[in-house]
């Protein structure tokens, strides 16, 4: 258990160090996120009433598509550089690798989402400075990273991974998407616990279940 934790931390620290040095993945996800957020400017008439209705949807469509770009790279880089074999050679349990990569992806997504949030204010006058929104977004991002880490390991070895990853990710993360959009709408309406609270509970329950199942299933994906 302790050895596994140490190995997971080693994988996480390694990923953070590489990203801090190259900023390759963060640069790509951020650029994509801004473009994704920006395109909605022309997708509909940006009147305040429309915005109140579609605002949460815009935020989460941008976040989800950006997340798919990020998770695509999670294991792709390890596979392309042959370093996945280096991870698999170690006596560390597969779950340790899963959690190391999971926290790496989670950190990347949280940073991207936080940096993107002001863009919604500038582009749509949508202020996301809201405790309940932050809670819903953080919880949903945990779930996205939990499912995404597993699917990334599958897609990294597959052909046509650009098509496969969204096809698998969207239906499997649908509960998160519904919960995050509804929770965000409630939070931005100022509904707090009575509105956003139950969505938050649903998302947290999803997180717990999917972290357990995904970390268990990861061993079956990793083996060759």
């Amino acid at each position: 258990m302790r050895a596994g934790l140490r190995a997971a931390l080693a994988v996480y620290a390694k990923d953070v160090r590489i990203e801090a040095r190259t900023r390759e993945t963060l640069g790509a996800t951020l650029a994509f996120a801004f473009v994704a957020a920006f395109i909605f400017t022309f997708a509909f008439d940006p009147s305040p009433r429309t915005l109140a209705a579609v605002g949460p949807g815009i935020v989460w469509v941008a976040y989800i598509f950006t997340a798919m770009l990020g998770m695509n790279r999670t294991f792709l880089l390890e596979v392309e550089r042959g370093t996945l074999d280096g991870l698999r050679l170690a006596p560390a349990p597969p779950e340790a690798i899963y959690f190391g990569k999971f926290f790496g992806l989670l950190t990347l997504l949280i940073v991207t989402e936080a940096l993107l949030a002001p863009a919604f204010l500038v582009l749509y006058g949508l202020s996301l400075l809201n405790v309940w929104f932050a809670a819903v977004a953080a919880a949903a991002t945990v779930g996205v990273a939990a499912v995404g880490t597993l699917l990334s390991a599958i897609a990294a070895h597959a052909r046509a991974r650009e098509a496969l990853l969204p096809l698998l990710f969207i239906p499997l993360s649908l509960p998160l998407l519904i919960g995050a959009v509804s929770g965000t709408a409630a939070a931005l309406d100022g509904e707090g616990w009575s509105g956003a609270g139950r969505w938050l509970q649903l998302i947290l329950a999803f997180d717990a279940a999917l972290i357990v199942v995904s970390s268990w299933a990861f061993a079956f994906v990793l083996e060759e």
Binding site: K14, I18, R21, T22, R81, G82, T83, D85, G86, L89
Partner: peptide, 12 residues
């Protein structure tokens, strides 16, 4: 084990 690939992270 030493394989065909060097299993090193190029940016480290």
């Amino acid at each position: 084990y030493v394989g065909h690939r060097n299993m090193l992270y190029p940016d480290l």
